[in-house]
Simulated assay, not measured.
Amino acid sequence: MEVVQEDKLKTLSYSGVFLSCFSDFSEKCIHATPEHVLVYLYSGEQIIEDRNNKIKLKAGDCAFIRRDHRLKMYKNSKGEELYKGISLTFNRTVLRDFYSKMNKSEIPKEIKISDKTVFKLELNPAIQSLFQSLIPYFDSNVKPTEGIIQLKVLEGIYTLLNSNELLYPILFDFAEPWKIDLLEFLNDNYMEDLTMEQIASFTGRSLATFKRDFKKISNLTPQKWLIKKRLETAYIKLKEEGQKVQDVYAEVGFKNASHFSTAFKKQYGISPTEVQN
Rank of each mutant, 00 (worst) to 15 (best):
V4H: 11
D7V: 04
L12R: 10
L12C: 06
S15E: 15
S15G: 13
L19A: 03
L19G: 01
S23P: 00
F25W: 11
A32K: 13
E35D: 13
E35G: 06
L38A: 08
L38F: 08
Y42I: 02
S43A: 14
D50Q: 06
D50C: 10
D50Y: 01
K54S: 10
K54P: 04
L57W: 01
K58A: 12
G60W: 01
D61K: 03
C62Q: 01
F64E: 02
I65S: 04
R66N: 10
R67A: 12
D68W: 07
H69Y: 08
R70A: 08
K75L: 12
E81Q: 14
E81M: 05
G85S: 07
G85E: 03
I86Y: 01
I86T: 05
L95E: 04
D97W: 12
K104D: 11
K109S: 13
K109L: 14
E110C: 08
I111R: 03
T117L: 03
T117K: 06
F119Y: 13
K120D: 04
K120C: 07
K120R: 11
P125Y: 06
S129D: 13
S129C: 09
L130T: 00
F131G: 00
Q132E: 14
I135S: 00
I135G: 00
P136Y: 01
P136E: 03
P136I: 03
Y137P: 02
D139S: 03
V142W: 01
G147M: 02
I148M: 08
I149P: 00
L151H: 11
L151V: 11
L151R: 13
K152C: 05
K152E: 07
L154A: 14
L154H: 11
E155H: 09
T159N: 05
T159Y: 05
L160I: 05
L166E: 14
L167S: 01
P169K: 03
P169T: 05
F172P: 07
D173H: 09
F174V: 10
A175K: 14
A175S: 12
P177M: 11
P177S: 12
K179L: 09
I180P: 00
I180Y: 13
D181L: 07
L182S: 02
L183R: 10
D188C: 10
Y190C: 05
Y190R: 09
T195D: 08
I199F: 04
I199W: 00
F202T: 05
R205F: 04
R205L: 06
T209V: 12
K211T: 04
D213F: 04
F214N: 04
K215Y: 01
K216W: 07
I217K: 02
I217E: 05
T221K: 15
E232R: 11
T233Y: 10
Y235F: 13
Y235D: 06
I236E: 09
L238R: 02
E240D: 14
E240N: 12
E241I: 07
G242E: 08
Q243Y: 08
V248W: 00
V248Q: 01
A250T: 11
T262W: 09
K266R: 14
G269H: 09
I270Y: 08
I270N: 09
S271D: 06
S271T: 15
P272F: 02
